[in-house]
Amino acid sequence: MAKSINITLKVWRQKDAKSKGHFETYHLENISTDSSFLEMLDILNEKLVDEHKEPIAFDHDCREGICGMCSLYINGHPHGYESEVTTCQLHMRKFKDGDVITVEPWRSRAFPVIRDLMVDRGAYDKIMQAGGYISVNTGGTPDANAIPISKEIADEAMDAATCIGCGACAAACKNGSAMLFVSAKVSQLALLPQGKLEAARRAKAMVAKMDELGFGNCTNTGACAAECPKSISLSNIARLNREFLCAKLKD
């Protein structure tokens, strides 16, 4: 049942990538525990606007855990402490009266801050552009049932494909590595017969782009998978390593 709590927020404010940022403290009273974390920030922003102050910039869109737009590093965890949720699915009932909540942006060299809690994750798009697709034009494709795919394989591909591209993996990683994200796409497409043909080329191109953009080297600490809101498995990283190394050894 709904009750309300009082909380203290320490929020990172930063004008742009070049400026120095700092924490600012806000007190909020009577926050309904049924409200979501982002709705709590909405309330704070309404208050700031009412006081003629600049609202806090943060990214969000679908507010149901699927678009991958929301971010936020909350009390030391991307998307908060609770597992398998995005920030927009986090509810205030997970916090206690009197809690101090520290909110930071994703911090990673490849994700520069745009303003406050908003960061630029364009690097993930660039990696996808390097090879995260099957090269097929519109039209002229065979009947959808022409190639049977076992349910197990289809399900495994689907599990990898659920990645929402939120960036929590790189944000959580002490090495700033994007391997979980890249491996999810490489796995999905390498598992399916349609994607196998290009698997080697894809793995090489995506890894090269990932390295070029300044992500770190994976040391298999697994923080990415532990924090991933979609529970993308580390075994995808093993598959990526396999695909990449086999491709390189064949060169």
């Binding site: 097929v136 039209g139 494709t141 190639i147 049977p148 289809a154 497409l189 399916l192």
Partner: peptide, 22 residues
């Protein structure tokens, strides 16, 4: 019908039966 063919060719992992069909 073309849409489904197109999406499968792109690697969209639609749900399947054990026999491998959609």
């Amino acid at each position: 019908n073309n849409i489904i063919d197109q999406c499968v060719a792109q690697g969209v992992p639609f749900a399947r039966e054990y026999g491998g069909t959609l």
